[in-house]
């Protein structure tokens, strides 16, 4: 009985404000509806068919995946390294450093957008002055070239959100009892061995959750990309969120049904990947590879 009482707030609140809206969007994806007028025509799977045949959808889809595949490991690993450094009692000024690494998280995205445009300015931005010193004449148009815009956005994303992952890691590292390290040191283990034999095994369950959190966060990049590149040039940094927004609100005649269909396809795809992963982990466990 306590079990359900404890679950009730989550089930109710989450059900009403997250699950129901998602299910609602499944219904919208079957309609030809602009979201503004009362004319809703049931069109069955027509939206899905159209999304499926839109090369720009698949491009955005790929960009989103690439964005995840690059930023999530980068963010998770870099922040773990920073967390280990900053978790050590021997580290001087660690509080100040933690705050510094956290500051980008709190900085307003719209302002980050203009500052980054200046920092990456192809003519006189500091990054390009450095690049030119390295011998690239004329510099690189980081945000304005379709070869680099998505990568630049990724770098800015990792910069902005590293602080939050750092906090998860710091919390996770706290679960490793300090006496374990002391015992290890007395037994003559070096820092690398300590890390491998004590920290890594204990952090494993957190790694999964932190990775999940980071994966989830990497889907929400709308503001950042919109203010820096607007998805351009020529769709080269268009991720799915921008694609969805473009159809749901940015188009001359908005198409909420179509946008929903795009979101549903992506959601299902991610879900399938998740299930496969889960099955993979289970299988590994059963054969005794895992612990």
């Amino acid at each position: 009985m306590w079990v359900w009482l404890f679950l009730a707030p989550t089930v109710v609140l989450y059900g009403v404000f997250t699950v129901y809206p998602i299910v609602g969007s499944y219904w919208y994806s079957l309609l030809d509806w602009d979201g503004f007028t009362t004319t809703k025509t049931f069109v069955g799977l027509a939206n899905y068919r159209e999304v499926w045949h839109d090369p720009l959808f698949w491009q955005a889809f790929w960009h989103t995946l690439l964005f995840m595949l690059v930023t999530v490991p980068a963010q998770v690993i870099l922040s773990l390294l920073a967390a280990i450094l900053l978790n050590s009692p021997k580290m001087p000024l660690s509080r100040v450093f933690r705050t510094a690494l956290f500051l980008p998280v709190a900085t307003t995205t719209a302002i980050v957008g203009i500052v980054m445009q200046s920092i990456f300015d192809p003519a006189n931005g500091p990054v390009n002055l450095f690049v030119q010193k390295l011998g690239f004449d004329g510099g690189i148009n980081f945000l304005g070239s379709s070869h680099t815009s998505l990568w630049t956005a990724m770098a800015v994303y990792v910069w902005k959100w590293l602080g939050i992952t750092l906090i998860y890691w710091l919390a996770a590292l706290q679960t490793v009892p300090r006496d374990l390290y002391e015992a290890g040191s007395i037994d003559g283990a070096g820092p690398v061995q300590l890390f491998r034999h004590i920290t890594v095994p204990l952090l494993k369950p957190f790694t999964i959750i932190i990775t999940l959190l980071s994966l989830e966060a990497s889907l929400h990049v709308f503001d950042l990309i919109q203010t820096m590149t607007g998805g351009g040039p020529f769709y080269s940094s268009e991720v799915l969120e921008i694609y969805i927004y473009r159809w749901a609100f940015g188009a001359t005649v908005p198409r909420l049904g179509y946008a929903s269909a795009a979101a549903v396809i992506f959601g299902l795809f991610v879900f399938v990947i998740g299930i496969l992963q889960l099955l993979g982990v289970r299988a590994a466990r059963r054969t005794g590879v895992g612990s």
Binding site: I114, Q117, A123, G144, S149
Partner: peptide
């Protein structure tokens, strides 16, 4: 054209 102009909006 100012090199970064291809990413600027009108305000900036």
């Amino acid at each position: 054209l100012m090199p970064g102009a291809t990413t600027l909006n009108d305000e900036i």
